[in-house]
Every structure is written in C-alpha cells, then in structure tokens.
Computed example of a mutant assay.
Amino acid sequence: MGTNAFHSQQKWNLGFIVFLSLLLVLLAQISIHLTLIFALGISLGFVLQKSRFCLVSALRDPILIGMTQLTRAFLLLLGISILGFALVSWGASQRNIPLILNVFPLGVHTVVGGLLFGIGMVLAGGCSTGILMRIGEGFAMQGVAFFGLVVGAVLGERSLIYWRNLFGEWPGIFLPDLLGWVPTLILEIAMLVALWQLAKWWQNKQLGE
C-alpha cells in the first residue's frame, strides 16, 4: 500500500508540473510580465511550503517550546532584505534613478493594531503566508481564518483615518536620512547579530543543549 501510494503521488506531482508548464507557456503568449509574476509566486509558495516558514512559529515557538530555528531564519531574512535594499538604493543613486519610499507615520494605533494582529495570528494558527500555504495543502479551517483576515484588512483600511484622528501620529523615521547609509547598516546588522546570539542562547538554555 505504501509503495502504491508513493507512485500515485509521483504521478500527481508529474501531472501538476506538466499543467504548470503548459499554463506558463500560455501566459507567456499573453504577457511576459504576468508570466514572471506567476512563476515567482509559485516559487515562493513552494519554498514556504517546504521550509514550513511562518512568522507565528518564529515568534511563538521560543516562548512555548524554546525552539528558535525559525526565529533565527526570520532574522536572517531581515538581514538579507536590509542588505538587498541598501544595494538597490545604492545602485539607483549611482544611476540617478529616484526611489519613492513609503515611510509611514507612527501612532498608538500602530501598537494596538500590531498586538491585535499578533493575537489573531496565534489564535488562527498561522500568519498570512502560513494561512495561504495551509489552504493550498487542503486545510479547510484556514479558509475561515483567511476570510477573517480579508474582512479585518478591509475594515482597517476603511477606518484608518478615524484611528489616525483619534490617537494622533508621529512622523515616520527613515534612519539613513538621520545617520547615513553606512552607520545605519552597521547598527541594523549589529542588532540582528545580537538578537541571533540571544535566540541561540535561549534555545540552549531552554532545551539544555
């Protein structure tokens, strides 16, 4: 039975790969840009599903079970993103290409919204990407969580002006404008390295490694 199930799964995988390949070929006839976006989405979904990467696990596991592998993976992701953004910004400045940055203001509503979103992630059992990944795997209950995510996002967007007026806001801060690019990179990477070491120490302490 096990061998038959394995071969059956292989056939499904092969069929799915053929289907995706044909779909990409058809999309390429319509728009190369759309094809690249679709291929990137499929690739990201594949990596997320195989790595089991989830922001909830990265923030929850150190407290519940003392494991920090995903926490350190998240810190690594931040480090790569910071270096990549700095490289793109430097390349744009060398070519005199203007960059439009969205540095949003902060307020009490930002903290309250973050806490509510964090509590919701834990109760739902996954972050936004985790919910989408599990829906793709066939977990029907994650569809309920996704519906709540969509409703909450729409209500939040429609009522954002009200919360801004109620709590007030402070101007957003873009560190390179205050410190310069090199000091900002040094500061951010140093903070990530310190958090990495702290996460590693916490796991060793909790699990007795």
Rank of each mutant, 00 (worst) to 15 (best):
G2F: 08
T3A: 15
N4Q: 13
H7V: 04
Q9N: 13
K11S: 11
G15Y: 11
I17F: 12
L27N: 13
A28G: 12
H33M: 02
G45F: 05
V47G: 02
V47W: 10
L48K: 00
Q49Y: 08
R52V: 00
R52E: 12
F53P: 02
A58D: 09
I63E: 01
M67Y: 10
A73Y: 08
L75T: 00
L83D: 06
L87S: 06
W90A: 08
G91P: 00
A92Q: 13
S93Q: 13
R95A: 15
N96A: 14
P98Y: 01
H109E: 14
G113L: 05
G113Y: 12
G114S: 01
L115C: 12
L115I: 15
L115P: 11
L116M: 07
F117T: 02
I119K: 05
L123H: 05
C127T: 00
I131W: 15
M133Y: 07
G136V: 02
G136F: 07
E137M: 14
V144F: 15
A145Q: 05
F147Q: 09
L149Q: 10
A153E: 08
V154G: 05
S159G: 02
S159D: 11
I161M: 10
I161G: 04
F167V: 01
P171A: 09
P171C: 02
G172L: 02
F174D: 11
P176F: 00
P176V: 01
L179E: 06
G180H: 10
I186P: 03
M191S: 12
V193G: 08
W196D: 09
Q197D: 09
K200L: 06
G208F: 09
